[in-house]
């Protein structure tokens, strides 16, 4: 597990910031779900990210 520190007010800002720094990750990140402070989101660009928030990217889950 790799950890980085990024300044972002919402999930979309976070994605843009990470994709600018690591363009090769863009496709993977766009296909990922994200957990912000333990809450898992899918396609939630406008979800706010608070100060010192812990964010995890993880594969999307579909289920049966």
């Amino acid at each position: 597990m790799r950890q980085v520190e990024v300044t972002a007010e919402n999930y979309r800002d976070l994605l843009k910031s990470l994709e600018e720094r690591w363009p090769a990750l863009a496709e993977k990140l766009e296909r990922s779900a994200v957990a912000i402070e333990g809450q898992i989101y899918q396609d939630a660009w406008l979800e706010p990210i608070g100060p010192d928030a812990e964010v995890h990217f993880l594969p999307r889950i579909e289920g049966g």
Binding site: M1, A35, E37, G38, Q39, I40, E54, H56, F57, L58
Partner: peptide, 8 residues
């Protein structure tokens, strides 16, 4: 959780 986030 093993997949990253903390459980609520």
């Amino acid at each position: 959780a093993p997949y990253g986030p903390k459980f609520s």
